[in-house]
Design a protein around this nucleic acid. Structure first.
Lengths: 151, 151
DNA sequence: CAAAATTTGTTTACAAAGAAACAATCTCCA
DNA sequence: TGGAGATTGTTTCTTTGTAAACAAATTTTG
């Protein structure tokens, strides 16, 4: 007597299917996966893009603040910024007021790159909730904003 | 003339603050972070728990199907399962029908562990949307389920 | 049926991200 | 003032996850 589960949608998740952490992880992976199918290797990865985007809109932002806002740990931020510096996309400046800190700015080159990239980034973003109605999408966005405290 | 951004909530995210991928990432990190504050090092990590939970409810499930459902890549799944096997939590069986496949079952020991762990896991899960109203929480759950195709 | 293509899992090499320890600087207050 | 404690960033080590090449078994198809 053998009746094995053959496909993913036959799997019984029991209560797990309403666990927010679980759903959120699936949702994020799904977005990320589709991103590479659709956008491909479009030179800027989503993570890099958002870092550069935030620097563009907050020139001279400090590494620590950037990390807090994007929830990137300091150790990791150091590496990201160095990688961007190596590609000549950002420049670092030690402010006079506080010589521990580092203020980040985009190079002119990066400004162009980010502005271009923002076109396909937000185009993709707009397509993300395609299996939801426009209204559901708005609701979801609003709820997530409240959830993470961005409202 | 210097007016630097000092705190994370002064940061201008522009359109990024309604990008679903971005919000989803923040949300997931926030959940994960709080998880370790509240639950601490409660021997089973969220990832391990969900794998074991799904095996509990689908005994003899195949590695590939498990991976598809939890969106874990095959290469990674191999390592996870081996780690669980080393802890004597799961056993692997090659079915007669298809000798490429591996069917996974919990050891009796693991059944107890998972049932215990499920108590604190779902207790924590229930506390996750605490800054939302009960109704908002329900909506969010439903929208996410639809989003990931679990409805 | 036999060769080609696909599926399943493993291995190896690598990338992304976090933890802990550290150094430099700054803040606060006794 | 000056020393204790906090902040900021870096380094090193480890964990977590992915990518690509592979082997074995199965399915497809000519």
């Amino acid at each position: 007597m053998d009746m094995p589960i053959r496909t993913a949608d036959e799997v019984d998740l029991d209560r797990l299917n309403s666990a927010l952490g679980f759903l959120m992880r699936l949702a994020q992976l799904k977005i990320y996966e589709r991103f590479f199918e659709e956008v491909g290797e479009h030179n800027l990865k989503p993570g890099e893009f958002s870092v550069l985007w935030v620097i563009l809109h907050n020139p001279g932002i400090r590494q620590s603040v950037l990390g807090q806002r994007l929830m990137i740990k300091r150790a990791h931020m150091t590496k990201l910024i160095r990688a961007l510096e190596d590609q000549n996309l950002v420049s670092r400046r030690i402010p006079d007021g506080d010589r521990r800190a580092v203020e980040i700015t985009l190079t002119p080159e990066a400004v162009t790159r980010v502005e271009q990239a923002s076109q396909w980034f937000f185009t993709y973003e707009a397509s993300v909730g395609a299996n939801l109605t426009a209204d559901e999408r708005r609701q979801l966005t609003a709820l997530l904003q409240k959830f993470v405290g961005l409202d």
